Structure formats: C-alpha cells, structure tokens
Simulated scan of single mutants.
Amino acid sequence: MTVSSVLNGKTGQASEETRAKVLKTVEELGYHPNGVARGLARRRMDTIGIVASFSDRPSLTHDRYFGPVFDGLLVGAQRHHQRALIITEDHWDDLPGNISRYLDGHCDGLIFVTPTFPNKVLAPILKAKLPIIFLGENRPELAVSVIDMDNEAVGKLATSKLIALGHRRIAYLGGDADLRSSFERQAGYTTALQQAGISLTSELSVLGHYSEASGYRETQRLLETLPAAQHPTAFFCGDDAIAIGALTALQERGGRVPEEFSLIGVNDDEIGRKSTPALTTIQQPLRALGEHAIEMLLEQIQDKKCSLQRVLLPGEWIERGTVAAPPLPERRV
C-alpha cells in the first residue's frame, strides 16, 4: 500500500525517507505503472475515441472539413490531458460488424464525426450507456448529444443577404442527400424566401454533392433547361466547392460575377479565397466544433446523469467579391 500511494502521488501516507527509497528503486528497476491496469481500477482510461469514415477520401487530416475538425479534437484532448484514439472505418456500412471494438473498454466515450449510418446501428452502444457525441450530424430523434454548425441559420442568412440586395430568383445548390446539413441549409433557404414573400420554385432548389463537379453540373443544367427569363440571378451554394463549380460554369458561358450573377458558399476554403473574384462565404467554426465536442464528452464522462446537449454554433459571414445587386435590365446567358 505504501508503494502504491507513492506511485499514485498520494501525500501523507509515507515519510519522505520512504518516498525517496521507493522512487529510487523505481528508477533503478526502470518500472513504469501499467496505465491499462490503473485505468481499470479507476474505471477511467482517460482515452477518447474519435470515429470517422474514410468514404473514398484520400486523406482525413488534409481534408478541408475533417482536417480542421481533427485539429480541434486533438487540441481539446491535449488540453484536458486525454489520449485520443482515432478509429476509422472504410465506410459507415462497415460499422455494424465492428461494434465490439467500440465496447472493449479502451475508451471512456466516443465522438462520431459526421456519421451517416442508420440510427439502429447505434443501439448496442446506447445500451452499453457509453457517452457519445455526434459532431457534424444533427439527429434530434436520437438520445445522443450533438454539436454542429447551425446549418439552418446559415441557409437563412445567406439567402436573406441575397434578398436584401434585390435578388428574387435564387437557386440553392446543395450537398449530399445522406447528410443532414444539406437539408438543413435548404430549410434555411426556404424559410428566408417564405418570410420575404417569394414563391419557392422547386427547380431552383437541388441537391447534389459537396464537390466542384456537382456545382458545375447543376449550374449548367439550370442554365440549359430553363428559359433565359427564368434563370436565377443568384446562387446560394451549400459548400465553397459547389460555388467554385458554379462560378466556372457561369464564366465559361460568358456570365459575369457579381455584375450579373451573385454567389455565396459555405466553409471559407482556400480555393474560394483564391478564386477570381474571391468567393463570399459563411465560415464554418470547424476547429471550435472539435474543441467543444471534447468538452461536451468529458462532461458526460464525469457526470453520467449529465443532460444531453444539442449545441449549434453560428457561422461567420465573410463578404468578398461575388455578391452584388442583380442587373437592371437583367442579361441572361
């Protein structure tokens, strides 16, 4: 018991002479306490599991979304003296077959980054009462804590800015249909139009993918299939990559941005900062999402009766060179 109290830093249970002898012996033997054994005894491993899917991404750390989020997660874990165990799946479809490794006792809690698996997959983890945070995927129907950007507010903000400039035919080019953020930003777009008394035109609101190719393809499709008089004068794009694709499509057809068409993206990616003209966007608080997720999970770990939280952080409006009032009279391309 005396040796244990010295190794665990407890004071008052051994004299200074005894303490010195124990520490000297430990040094001579090269002894290091078994962290796993100590963790089991304390019922705390001081380890947070961070779960993500590659989903055909060449890199997570260099990804424009996951990179800053992981920075925040790792900084937050370090700040609170926690180990971070990164667990990756090739695809979320692989998760059901690997549930056992999430419940093997190595982690005190889990943070799932933009999970797209069905709700039923989570049942064994919820049954085990392991603390869980969903980062980047807002699922109100699940009994889990969530942190994300307020995507609906972002959609409403971007669309309202365009309406205030005088635009009435505003297109929404959204991201992937399996991500809640696509629908939430679309909901904000719809709300802004309705509150301004502008009729929603279904063909101007489309989902695709969070990619340049999708933005390019959907913009070309709108301009080719709609009569010139019905072309949008502004595009709210659910992502900077989509906006850059739209910008390329417009410029290839001779369209001038922002003189004839306005564009707004989401993220504040480097590609948008370097585009010509520079892209107006709403910056996601990606690093802050990671840092806050760690704090939220630790609250649950430390207090099993802690109430579930749903934290939605605001985006930051960054105006650059792709927004202006619509042309009068409007020139269509």
Rank of each mutant, 00 (worst) to 15 (best):
78 Q>E: 08
77 A>I: 05
127 K>C: 02
109 G>Y: 00
102 Y>H: 11
145 S>K: 09
87 I>E: 13
163 I>L: 14
164 A>K: 13
116 T>N: 06
160 S>A: 13
90 D>L: 11
142 L>G: 12
98 N>F: 06
67 G>Y: 12
91 H>E: 08
58 P>I: 01
153 A>L: 08
125 I>K: 04
127 K>I: 03
172 Y>V: 02
155 G>Y: 07
56 D>Y: 13
110 L>F: 03
82 Q>I: 07
173 L>G: 11
64 R>K: 10
103 L>D: 03
141 E>P: 07
94 D>M: 03
146 V>D: 08
143 A>Q: 15
91 H>R: 05
63 D>I: 01
73 L>M: 02
111 I>W: 01
78 Q>V: 03
72 G>D: 04
98 N>D: 08
81 H>G: 01
162 L>K: 02
121 V>H: 08
91 H>D: 14
72 G>F: 07
74 L>Y: 02
171 A>Q: 13
126 L>M: 14
148 D>N: 08
147 I>T: 08
153 A>N: 09
134 F>P: 11
140 P>G: 02
101 R>T: 04
154 V>N: 11
107 C>N: 09
166 G>Y: 15
72 G>S: 09
172 Y>G: 05
130 L>S: 00
134 F>M: 10
117 F>V: 00
102 Y>N: 00
72 G>M: 03
107 C>Y: 10
125 I>W: 06
127 K>N: 13
99 I>S: 05
56 D>N: 13
150 D>V: 10
157 L>P: 08
132 I>R: 06
165 L>T: 02
88 T>A: 06
